[in-house]
Write a protein that binds this DNA or RNA. Sequence first.
RNA 1: UGCCGAAUGGUGUAAUGGUAGCACGAUUGCCUCUGGAGCAGUCUGUCAUGGUUCGAAUCCAUGUUCGGCAGCCA
Length: 571
Amino acid sequence: MTTNNHPEAEPAPALPAGDFIRDIVAADQASGKHGGRVVTRFPPEPNGYLHIGHAKSICLNFGIAGENPGGVCHLRFDDTNPAREDVEYVDSIQEDVRWLGFDWGANKFYASDYFERLYQYAVELIQLGKAFVCDLSAEEMATFRGTPTVPGKPSPWRDRSVAENLDLFTRMRAGEFADGAKTLRAKIDMASPNIHLRDPAIYRIRRAEHHQTGTAWLIYPMYDYAHCLSDSIEGITHSICTLEFEVHRPLYDWILDALKTPCHPQQIEFARLNLSYTVMSKRKLLQLVQEGLVTSWDDPRMPTIAGLRRRGITPEAIRNFCARIGVTKYNGLTDVALLEFAIREDLNRNALRVMAVLHPLKVVLTNYPAEQTEEMPAVNNPEDPAAGSRLVPFGRELYIEQDDFMEVPAKKFFRLAPGAEVRLRYAYIIKCEAVIKDATGRITELHCTIDPDSKSGGATAGRKIKGTIHWVSAAHAVPAEVRLYDRLFTVPEPDHAGEGRDFKEFLNPQSLATLTHCQLEPSLRDARPEARYQFERLGYFRADPKDSAPGKPVFNRTLTLRDSWVKEQGK
RNA sequence: UGCCGAAUGGUGUAAUGGUAGCACGAUUGCCUCUGGAGCAGUCUGUCAUGGUUCGAAUCCAUGUUCGGCAGCCA
């Protein structure tokens, strides 16, 4: 298991027991059904970026392969629809799977690798009298198909001779017919209660350049036809997919039974991941990108792997999350709080603590010498003694967080207020003596005094002070831009928010706040994107890998810390 | 009204005829130089009604509710 950004990270905790799919695999192993082999596959269509829902599938498929001796998991691009696919997606998918910590070794395939073989299988199907060339238009075919409650009617072309079908199919491939003019259809049962068995189209004519095969093909196989055969060709033992393909399984099995194929994999369906406060369909995510509602597929607000990565979430957190949510056939809605827990759990263990002030309020320590500077030792990570400590410069003028001062303190407010005392983290206890305002009444700075005996680590530092706040020395501070991200949508289910309502109506206008006047402790000047930080009392942050420049970091907030003060205020 | 599938606390799951457990969440307290973390406690559940059984979340029947399926998308 790779740990790209966290060589110091502990191995992932023991994963939960099994699930119904692992039970099936174990039973098959016990009975010797597949001769002891376990071969799974992760089969994305390269028509978009991977998202956290795909991560669930990746962890499942690669996970099962990894848990079984000799098990392998293939990465297979399901690229049968060139109109919507692109190499950009082929590349991003590989990067994302690898980043998540999984390795397909030499087993990278494309359904398009099998186009010739798939074509020969189709010829075979025709020869068997189990497929025919149909001249019906798309609209006509829809009419003939019937509805779930009304049986379909056979196509008038259903009984063409094998010879004629062979001839026509050959000419489809040769480009003699216009796009959409003809299809090859499986001959099954137009009256089947399962619509997918009503003579489904298995090849269509499409003059589209394919990102892998170029212009070699004018006809392309449909998913149902290509997928089961690709599985069989690769010797897949367990073909794991999501619930909506459950009704396709009889067709999957029909095709493999009709043909002489290397093996007959078992299709097993599980519930896809739904996460609250987000959307999880490539179509909708693409829409957000195309309409400029987010900046890109890797916008840190996106639930894409690339977005989560850029935001600062680690592969460990995603894997642990996937392990926690389990695998079932129940189509529910997972609370995003579960994801957030996994992120905090990981970052709490691994992130380096630093001090940064997001909304600066200047503090002048009136009894501290103007020319004096001290270096305060600060712990890098209380969860990890090996992370050591560092020195943080301290001086007469500081910045503190605006939120850490209240002119009229609320009940249970433990921070600074006129006449009140607070502990400066790793430094002195200070007392607020005066509030300085400008002509408009806005607070511009605070005048405070230190208790010189209260320095951290000092002999008389033990005075009990309820509140501790973070700070940055004004003379040493590094100014920086910090981006605060929040959930992308304001409602738990933007997908099901009401009749005729569009999910984009529920976009959270506050999902991004860009702060341009933040002040960081100097150790952050050259922060590298690989590092994960906790800005003490605020949250987890990482330098944006695209927008940071040397000496001029831009930070993304990954997630806030849990904040019981916010809850207290809500009472 | 057709076919397929699923129902366990607020959420995600476990228990495979034998004490309904875990995690998240919420909440109370302890602790704390992060209102973080940690520690301790509390909270809430087997869709319904029958049946089989010494015993049912689990098996059976009926019903209810929810999800999926009518692309030449995957």
